[in-house]
Write a protein that binds this DNA or RNA. Structure first.
Length: 289
DNA sequence: GTCCAGGTGGCCG
DNA sequence: CGGCCACATGGA
């Protein structure tokens, strides 16, 4: 069992980071979280400033959980009003994970127009059917299947994974990714707008999914996915007028201008308390939008 | 039965 | 460009 001690400049909340809806495979049992990082089963637990784990190197843990990111500086930069301030207080220590590129892209294609429990179930079925067996000890685990494995299992995919109309999207994207091993480095090397346009050429990847993949898979902390919850929160607290038609791009640009270069973090902190913020107006409207 | 969920693709003006 | 609408699935 490895252990590191987190200092004052490295706030981290393992549970909030893994349960806020950015990743879909981790499971908590008795305070211990089990999951998969790059084909390795990892079990980890936090006790105050101590972070314990097994199944990965310290370097891999630091990278995956973004422990090398200056979170206090980011939170200081986005802390601009009572609403986001409250979200920061509620979820301090939440970090945006660095997900593997393909896992992130495939997961967010599966994550469209559904709810988080269903997403977890479908991704679990996908991994069980097409991932490689990497069990360690008691719990059976599978790696996240590569694009080739999914493409090869195209006939079984619809029946097994309950993806509905998303199955052909995932298969089409899996084909193209499998045939293009450098797709991720090209996305990574482009500026935000270009990278986003590249991602949106894949089937099942629109504006929102592209922003999720850039934020959670490519570390583009300026990316702001606007889902129904974020739209609701922006309408409740940030728009001049609550009603009326507002486009995705308008809301995204507002959030990026208003919160700045780490707007993606603001998005995730607001998302993490979506039920509390989305169901009413618990704060005065800032009316900046 | 109805409504909702980390939306997208296709079509139409 | 923007406005519609169908699209599978499962839980409340």
């Amino acid at each position: 069992m490895h252990c590191i001690t987190l200092d004052r400049e490295t706030p981290f909340d393992l549970g909030k980071t893994l349960s806020c809806g950015q990743v879909f495979r981790w499971k908590e049992k008795g305070g211990a979280w089990s999951g998969v990082i790059e084909d390795q089963v990892v079990v980890t637990r936090q006790d105050g400033s101590k972070l314990y784990w097994r199944g990965a190197t310290e370097e891999e843990i630091v990278r995956y959980f973004s422990l090398d990111t200056d979170l206090p500086a980011i939170l200081g930069a986005i802390d601009r009003d009572p609403v986001i301030h409250h979200a920061i207080n509620r979820s301090e220590g939440l970090r945006i994970i660095r997900q593997p590129h393909w896992e992130c892209l495939a997961s967010y294609i599966i994550a469209t127009f559904t709810n988080i429990p269903s997403i977890k179930r479908r991704i679990g079925l996908l991994c069980g059917a097409f991932g490689e067996e990497i069990s360690r000890g008691d719990e059976p685990w599978h790696s996240f299947p590569g694009a080739e494995s999914i493409a090869k299992g195209r006939d079984r995919l619809p029946g097994i994974c309950r993806l509905g109309y998303r199955a052909p999207y995932l298969l089409d994207t899996a084909d193209r990714v499998a045939a293009d091993p450098t797709w991720a480095e090209r996305v990574a090397s482009c500026p935000y707008d270009e990278a986003r346009a590249m991602l949106m050429k894949y089937k099942g990847v629109g504006r929102k999914v592209a922003d999720c993949v850039l934020l959670f898979g490519f570390g583009r902390l300026c990316a702001v996915p606007v889902d129904v919850w974020i739209e609701r929160i922006l309408r409740n607290y940030y728009l001049e007028k609550e009603g009326g038609p507002v486009s995705y791009e308008y809301l995204r640009h507002f959030a990026q201008d208003y919160f700045g270069e780490y707007a993606g973090y603001a998005q995730e902190y607001l998302f993490s308390i979506r039920e509390e913020l989305g169901s009413g107006k618990n704060f005065p409207r800032t009316g900046q939008c």
